[in-house]
Every structure is written in C-alpha cells, then in structure tokens.
Design a protein around this nucleic acid. Sequence first.
RNA 1: GGGCCCGUAGCUCAGCCUGGCGGAGCGCCCGGCUGAUAACCGGGAGGUCGUGGGUUCGAAUCCCACCGGGCCCA
Length: 1063
Amino acid sequence: MYALPPVYDFRTVEEEVRRFWAERGIPKKFLELNRGGPIFSFLEGPPTVNGYMHVGHVRGRVCKDVVLRFATMQGFWVWRRAGWDCQGLPTELEVERILGIRTKKDVEAIGMERFVEEANRLVDHYIQHWRKDSETLGLWLDYDTAYETRNERYMEHIWYLLKRAYENGDLIVSNKVVPFCPRCETPLSSHEVSLGYEEVEDYSLYVKFPIESMPGTYAVIWTTTPWTLPANEAVAVNPEETYVEVATGKGNLLIAEKLLDRVAAETGLGQVSVVRRLSGSELVGLRYSHPLAEEVGIHADHAPPAHTIVEAEFVSMEEGTGLVHIAPGHGPEDFELGKRLGLPAPCPISTTGVFTEEAGAFAGKNHREAAEDVIAALERKGLLLHKGKVVHTYPLCWRCQTPLVYLLSRQWFLRVDRIKRLMLEENSRVRWIPAWAGSARFREWLENAEDWCISRTKVWGTPLNVWTCESCGARRVVGSKAEIERDAIEKPQPLRMHRPWIDMVVFRCDRCGGLMRREPFVLDTWLDSGVAHFASVDYLSNPSLFERLFPYDFITEAIDQTRGWFYTLLFTSVLLFGKAPYKTVLTQSHVLDREGKKMSKSRGNVIWASDAFRELGVDNVRLYLLTKAQVWETMNFDPEEIRVVRSDLNVLWNVVSFAKTYFDLDRYDPEREGYDAYERFAEPEDRWIVSRVNSLIRSVTSSLERYELTDAVRALLRFATEDLSRKYIRAVRRRFWDEKRTPKKIAAYAATHYVLTRYLTVLSVFAPHIAEYLYQRIRSPSMPESVCLTRWPKVEEHRIDPDLEDAMEVADDVISSSLAARQKAGYKLRWPVARLIISPKSARAKDAVIRLLDYIARMTNSLRVEVLDVGQEPREAVKDLEPVLRSLGPAAGKRLNEVISALRSLRPMEVIESLESEGEYVLRLPDGTLFTLTQEHVQVVTRLPEWLREHEGRFARVYVDLKEDESVKALSAVNEVIRRVQVLRKELNLEVTELVDCRVYVDDSGWVEALKTLSEHFEEETRSRLEILGAPPRPEENDAVREWEVGGKRLVVGLKRTVGRGS
RNA sequence: GGGCCCGUAGCUCAGCCUGGCGGAGCGCCCGGCUGAUAACCGGGAGGUCGUGGGUUCGAAUCCCACCGGGCCCA
C-alpha cells in the first residue's frame, strides 16, 4: 500500500510522478482529451532557440500551462501545437563564434553551406533542451508536431504573404538610414548597436553658417561628426524656444537663449551683448550659404528648403547650441525630417566608410581621416567658431570596435498606412489582460507605427523572395518553392530555400528577357514568428483546420512583445485576413534577480530553469512564480522565498498524510461511504468545509476565467492552510481518533475525501506533481487514473451555505478570544474551563454562536457555554465609577481628595442611575459642603471578579470562568497525565492503535481520585489499561518509565507493551 | 521629451475599479500544544498608505501637480 513519507520532499514526489506519467502515457492521453469537442485554440509564441530556458521563461510557460490545463479539464479540445523560432541574429552570432568568423569575408571563405549547417545543428541542440525543460516543467504541448520557422513549408507561408503584399502595393523598397560597420561592411541591427556603446573622445565643433539675408550674422551649430557636414542640407531649430542674436568679436551669432552661457563659456567668446531675441519660428525659412559649398559641388544644385533653417520638435535645449545640423543621409531622425520637408538626402560615403565622388574635394578619403580636411576647410574660411574635444557615448561595432557610420541604404518595407486604422479597430476588440496593456500601451504603439523594415543583410534567415531583372529592373515576387522548380532557368540540385542555395536561382525576365537575380536579403525574424497564426497550421495545405482555430482564443507572452510578436501577428493577420489573430492576450512582465536587476549571462545572475527545477522543485517554482506578484508585474526572483510555498504544500501534505493514516486504519471506502451517503451524520464543521471547498472552486473558476492566475493560486493555498488544516482538521481530529467506526467518524472521512479529491483536482492545474502524488493516495477505483485526466469539479451550489460560513467566522472569533483570555491568565488549553460566557455584539453573531455552540465548546475545552443577549454583560460584572481627574480636578480644587473618598463610599449604581436620569449627582462632603457631580467627572467601568477573564473579539466579547470546581480539577489533572503518557507512547514508537499497560504513580490524593473517576476517559485517550500504583513503577517491569514534576506533584509513569493485544 | 506600470509594516504583497475601523504571509518578540510533530496553535510589537494640493461629512482609494523606481518609444 502507499504510505506517505513523513515530510514533503519534492524530489521523490516529482521523480515518482514523472515516472508514473511516463509509464502510463498520461501526457499523451491528456492531449487527446475531448477530441472532437468544442475547441479552445492556443497559439504558442515560439521561444527563440538560441539559449537555455531560465526562470523568466518559466513564468510565461507556467501561465500557458495553467490556462491550457484549465481549459482541458473544462472539457475543451485544446489546440496547443508547440513551436520554435529558429532563425535570427543571436544564432548567427553564436555560429560565428563557433566557427571563429569575424567578418563577412570569413563567411565567404568558410562557405555559407558550412555556416547554415552549423546553424541547424545549434538549433537542434537548443530545441532538444527546451523540449526537455518544458516537459520537466509539466507544460504538455504537442511537441511531436511542433512548428519550426526554419522549415521550408513554414517559410513558404511568408513568401505567400509577401507576394500578396507586393500585389497590393504593400511591399515596397525604399531608402533608410541604418548603422553600418565600415570595416565589417555590414549594417547592424538595433540590437547589435545597443551592444556596442562606449565612451569615446571626439571633436566638439562649433560651426558658423552664414545667413544670406543678414551679412555678418551666422547660425551656430554643434557637431561631433565633422564627416557628416558635406551632407548637410538644413539647420533645425525648435519653434517653441527663444533664440538670441549676440554681437561678438567673431560676428553676430544665433544661439538658443538657454544655451548661450554654456556655449559662450566653452567657445571662449568672452563678453557678448544681445542684439535681439527671436522665437525659433521666426528663424524658420532663413537661407544660409552651405559652409562647404566650394568643396562639395552637389550643393550648388540644392534649392530651398535645402540650406535653410527649418523647424523640428526634437531639437532639445540639453546640449549644443539649440540649432541642429541636419544631414538626411547620415541620421535616421534627419532622414525622416528631410523626407517630410522634401530635402535632398545625399550620402557621399560608401559602405566601406570612404567618401565618394559626391563628396567633391573629399572624395577617396576615409571619412574619419577626411574629417581633418573638413575642419581645415572651415578654419580657412573663418567658419569654425571653436574646435574642442568631448567625451561622449558613441556606438562602436561590437565585433571590431570600429565607430559606426550611419548611411542611407536601400531596404524593403511593409507599408503600414493602409492597415493602421484596421489594426487599431481590431485591437479594440481584443481582450487584454491587464486592460491597459492593450487600451493604452499597445494602442499607443499602433498609433505611432511606421513602415516595417523587413530586410536584413544576414545569412541565417528566411530569404526575401524578390528577384530583380539585371537589365530592366522588373521584379518578380516568388510565392512558393514549386514556382522555382517550374520557372527558374538556373537552380541548384537539390534546391533548398535557405541561402546560399536560393541565391543560385535565376529567372528569365518576362519583360526584356534579361536575367533576374534575387535581392540578397533575408527577412526580419519577427516576420518568421509573426506569421505563426497561419504558417504553424500549414494553412496553404489545410485551410479548413485554420478556419476552425482562427482567431486564436488565447496567447500569452511578456510585455516586451508589444512591439514584437503581438504586433507582428496583428500586422500580418490584418494584412492577410483583415482580422486580429487572437481574442485574448495575457501579458506578463519580467523576472528579475533578487535585487531587482536584470538577469544576464554577463552579470552571472541568471537562474536556469533546469537548476531551479532540480534544486527548488518544479511545483514550488511554479507556485512561487504565480503567487509572488501579479504576472503582469515585474517580480524579483529570490530562491529564499520559495520556502513559503513549500511550507504551504507541506501543510497540505500533512493533511493528506493524517487523513490517509486513518482512512487506511479503518479501511475507509470512499465508493460506498461517500459524502452523499453520510451527509446526514455530518457535524457543522463537515458541512462547513464542504461548503467552503465549493465556494473555493467557484472563486478559483471565476478567477481563471478572468485570467487572474495569481488571485486563483493565492485563494487555493490559503484554503489549504487556513480552512482545511488550521480549522477543519483541528476540529475533526478527535473524531478521527475515535476507536469505534461510528457514522459520525465516517462522515468526517467522507467530508475530508470529498474536499481532497476536489481540491487536488483544482491544484493539479497549478502544481501537477504533488497533486498527482496525493491524488494517487486517496484515489478510489472509479476515479480517473490520473488527476490530470479528471474533469474540473462542478460547484455544488446546494452545498454552499453562506450563513454557515459566516457563522463559522464568528465561532472562530469567539474561539480565538477565549484562547486569548486564557492566555492572559496563563490557563492552559488542556485544562477545561468551567464556563464560557459569550456576549455577542449583534443578533447575527448571537445566532451564529447558538448554531455552533457545541463546536465552540469543543474547540475551547469548555464544560459549559452561556450565550448572553446582544451587548449584555455577565451577572458577575459589577459597575463602578472612576473619577476623571482631568475634569474633576479643576472642578473640585482643594476638595478633590474628599470628593473622591465620598464617591468611593457610595453605591456606584445609585450615582450612575442619578447621572443617567438627572444628569448630575450631589455629593455631601464631610465638612458639610455640597459638590455637584456631572457625567464628565466620572467614568463608568465594569469590574470583573478575579476568576472571570475577558477578551473582546470582532463579533463578541468573551469571558472565561476559571473557577476550578472538582470536575475541572480532575479533568485537568487527568489531561496532564494523559499528555505525558502520549509522550512515552511516542518514544516507544508505538502504533497508533497499539494497546499498552500503563502504571501511574502520583503523590497527590486528589490526582489519584481524579484518575480513578476518569479512568475510562484516560484509557480511551491513551489506548491503555490503567493501573494506579502506591509506589513508582520499576523500570525492570516496564518498557519505559519516566518521571515528571507537575505543579509541585511527583508523577511517574511506566508503560508496558501488551503481548498479543492490539496491533 | 512622450506613453504605460509601480510606490501601503523590516521584507514580499492584498486592499484602490465601486470612498466608510488600514490588512495578510514571512521575519521579530512572548506564550501554548505534543496521536499531522523536520509539524501545529495563540498573542504582541511594528505604518507620514512616496510628497503636496484639491473634491468630499469622510480619501490608501477619486482628481491635479510633483518626487522616486521600472518598461517601452523618441
């Protein structure tokens, strides 16, 4: 038979449960549940498989698991195909590390074939780890049919999408300023750029731009990148700010007022005098002569708005002069501004960082070296106001430390303007949790969305499916691999869709007969995962499956996917189907380390999932991640705090262990002795816990339906510790101990079994391992073989009794108060009190107390319970008066002491009654004078006799009567002996049911009498035959003998096993 | 600079939507229990509800401004 180990050890539990699941094939059966029933469709956000799973990932995967288990148990056929995001920069970088590649040329040398092969191998490796960790976690997705973004069939869906987009005019080629490493000759993604910021020293240049209409006046700009000046096309000001024209020895200068002092100090202008103040908008439109007009010929052709002052709200007063040099070919912001204003956007620097012919006098030189020439030219013309140095952060190539250069280049985009409105509309129909993630955050992102740049200059990715004719520029967007097989005039054998093979495919141009070659880009990986809604189910072959799943009921990822997956899914879905691809989105926030710092490999503070599972326990980690904070709030992961949930689970463990022990002892049969059959024997606490568990199921169900996972788990754990363990088990313990198989005892078993089966079912959604383990211990043959295969429990409304639940709350309050009153008097719980007096504070409280009178008596160890009327005091309470010196003192003056003693000599009730009816009472003092006492001079207090202790609770005031009559004394004495016998039994490791002989010696005749009178009670409690001795029992005649000093009495107890009795 | 989130006991968090006695767990202190025992139970101390203003009979809660932390965007 199963026996429960004494403490909850997650290692053995989880190992055993995993083995059980594997042997019985439970996960497979679970995935098959409800096939053919109503569908709940989930779309897995594919983890990027370029590293291992850490606890941050675990949080998201636990959310997925909880929702999917819940849906399954509710009877849905759940669609939950796993998926893996296989391509992308991080993988490419790791391949480069493995192969020792540093530049683009190295890739060519080693061969792209080799490169891609290595990438595939890496992806295989990580997928294997992710699957293993996910399974250990208990996240049962359909891994066998998992979608992978590197699969050709998957990539064909992207091609299909882009072909459609191209036909509709949504796929366009356009220019964009991107960061380049001139040494590696490659553009860098924003992610790569953020890797490489460093503090560097650069020139700090102040340059004068002569204003044409105001000879002798100059706009002053500040720059640290002189190599961008040849491409200058405008100077921007902030229209809201104030500018000044100041007269200096170097001409009249235009500078922002707020920055004047700083600029004057840095450039050594000395004294300056303000000629006039102008608003930024007044400057707009002024033409200037390009400071390098003579050196850079192209500027001769540039007409306004080129070479004028323009306005831009991004001009800040934080640094520089408040006038910003604009080079549309070298800055993303500049380019956007230029596009809006219609500025030319020359980019006279090549991808190797060398000035081109367009740069005129500077052509042929590296842009950094040519900077000196630029400075020299400005100096010669008197346009350099100041040349200094500055240390600032600037992006370097993370590979080779070369400073980056921003260059205009040709990229492919998906247009957003046509679908933006529909995306916003569709978004408003999506249910976001929490709501602000969608209504505020995501909406804001959508409103500001710009065309999506999807082209990347990389190797390991989905290739862009656009072929361009070398001769006439005609384009062909290919929709499938089959199209290549059919139409290409050159293609490798076998044909593979990845680079480099795809680059070998050539078409003949329909229009001119020329050769069409592929645009050499791969695609942004966000497009890979962003088509999962239809690519993951192979829409192209199986549209009917797609129709059944789409739009998906549920997705969940971290909040950073607002601009990532949440966006790209919506984008492609609206583009293709005009509809949001998901109905409900649960957003999570990030998991940080104990101190609230981001987990990162370089900091060394990452907690890997597999380590956490092994060292902290899967269920513990799951519950911890769910309970500590709402999932959409960031949480700090502190392994120390795990013990809180572990201790909660241990309490549950003890409950089941306790129940299991007695179920086995009595061969309890839940099939025949269920709660239905025994409800009529149930005590109030049984009905209460049954009501409570139904209320719990109702609230957990509702929380889960609202995706408030944290609330659900908190309520669940609270029930186990508060309701089930602290209240219920404590209340029924004595019934469980009953030797006889009474209906009342079986009713308690039935209630416990009823509660546990339901509770464990609900728990299995959150902590499947321990739930399964405990479920197996109390499972009866007609129950499903695994807790994971059970149905979500139905709330049995007729068993919810809100009045009883309320009444129990009152009873608990009374019990606590009585314990507190005992404590004040140092009166132990094992000593019964003669009388418990309850003065309820309300009629409801009174009803409650009366309803649960017997329960209260049992739990407080009271021989009798008296319930008073609302607000009534016990008859032993005596009213008295206390002088209030603060008011009485000033009124009585010197006579104070006499007034007080006069007051004391009176019957308090007489004075109180007079004060109540007359509002005053006249005192006659010894010297014959009178003193008029009013209500504010005295305070009415209640005095209790010594033996009556009170405590005020929320619902009632409670008094315990500590007068020890004979029966109380006797019971107290016997209970003291019983307790010590139990200690001895335990030391002898006796079975709970084993009978013993018990020899007791005590040198107090009162105790001896008590033992004789209560011998039956004693024998029942201790499972023994009592023998009272006139002398201490001798060790040689007993299995154990112990001596105590109890309340001044000498007590010696001996125990002897009874051979052949008990078992 | 803009958007969003957070700020409540030493720590971790409820309460806020819908205004009405400021809460829980952990930790700490004191005590109890001993047939769930590597458990369990009771009591206690501990608060400028980030700050300031407003609305209101009444504000942790609603409104405004500010401060601090975080995420995203620029």
